[in-house]
Design a protein around this nucleic acid. Structure first.
Lengths: 220, 220
DNA sequence: TCAAAAGTCAAACACTTGTTCATGAAAGCT
DNA sequence: AGCTTTCATGAACAAGTGTTTGACTTTTGA
């Protein structure tokens, strides 16, 4: 019944009970998305009396760490929170953008869980567009300063203007290239002299979207 | 007691009850951060019997719109569902990172509000480090693929290893350079042949932190 | 060393709240 | 019109859960 946050129970003996209570509440809410009951906290904090837990919850409320509404069941909410580092985030200001991993053969790339994780991005940089992230592998776009390991932010659309850097699906493989034309014929241009332009034929190629941003977390 | 989500109660008469229930649950959770009780939903949806609400909740669970755990109080959670675009964000997963604008003359750069805005970044890419963002101006680091207009993510620290790309304060101006040594003497190296290395003397120079990431939102 | 304060517990109580049941009205269908 | 199905209601029950009380133990401080 209350085993979801399986495990540990009492923590390091040195930590004070009130800390254990707070930590456990935090953990529980993160895991279960609902508040724990007093008795859940008992089990999770090592305290054996609901009374003790109750006392600490009230104290944590006074300290401003949580909001504890008298009488209500499972009504603890975290008062965000310590410092300016972790801030209360108005969730409308943040968007969870999926990182598309390997593109499987089937058509609906975005449909279910082809992605492994979400990265949160400020809405201010995305607006109301539908976006996703793609991890770059290879150096074919190095002259456009897009490196191996970068995450590119792609705004979904199925057309492209000449000169746009886009994400496209070629033979069921996702790549990043610059879209352009050569003598009126559409091509996908790598930005690396070692690679050759790829003819863009609508049979094997599908435009996923336009690259509107880039995240890099491996600096060297 | 249950007036927090003050107001409207029953909605457009045309809407079916099950929709009103779902909408109200959604609304309530958004407003109060905890699940409503069956009786709360009664009041909010216009239904007068807990039994009716209970039926619909169970149905919504079968439909996969919510998760309704039998017996638990205030334990409804939304099974997200439709958009995937706007998600309830566990705020501990997101950090607000300040964008440092102009560096004013005074010492404590980070102290108060020298910054203009925050950008939200996933905690998964930051960890527990203290970070800030700096907008790059100029092309002095172009060979390191850091462009004019990029935002660099800086982890605060006051030392640097040879080869690190760092943010430093030179004569009260913030710059990005690679830290290194020439004949044992520390220098700040631009990554652009048009610029010359800058001798790093501890009088005028202060290390702000190490560059650990990069965001670019102007692709061309 | 002694008394006050703080920490912890068990048990009981009372209220919130999920769940069920029987009933009745409204709507669909033959 | 009759029958079935759906929708809704109110009442009652049972369980989960917040809260209180009093006692016991440990720590703190003079």
């Amino acid at each position: 019944m209350s085993d979801s946050t399986s495990g540990k129970g009492r923590e390091s003996k040195s930590m004070k009970s009130i800390d254990r209570v707070y930590k456990y509440v935090r953990q529980y809410i993160r895991d279960n998305a609902i508040s724990p009951s007093v008795r859940d906290i008992c089990a999770g904090s090592g305290l054996k009396s609901t009374s003790s837990v109750h006392t600490y919850l009230r104290k944590l409320d006074e300290m401003g760490k949580i909001e504890y509404r008298p009488g209500m069941r499972r009504a603890i909410i975290l008062k965000d929170t310590d410092s300016a580092t972790v801030t209360p985030v108005p969730s409308s200001d943040v968007v969870a953008v999926p990182v598309i991993g390997k593109i499987t053969a089937g058509q609906p790339i975005f449909a279910h869980e082809d992605y492994e994780e979400n990265i949160f991005i400020s809405r201010s940089v995305i607006g109301s567009n539908e976006c996703f992230l793609l991890k770059v592998s290879g150096t074919s776009m190095i002259n456009a300063h897009i490196l191996d390991g970068d995450y590119i932010l792609v705004r979904k659309q199925n057309h492209a203007d000449e000169g746009d850097i886009i994400a496209a699906l070629i033979d069921n493989e996702a790549t990043v290239k610059r879209f352009g034309k050569l003598n009126g014929v559409p091509y996908l241009f790598p930005e690396n002299d070692l690679y050759s332009p790829i003819p863009f034929n609508t049979e094997d190629c599908q435009i996923l979207g336009k690259v509107v941003g880039l995240h890099r977390y491996s600096i060297s």
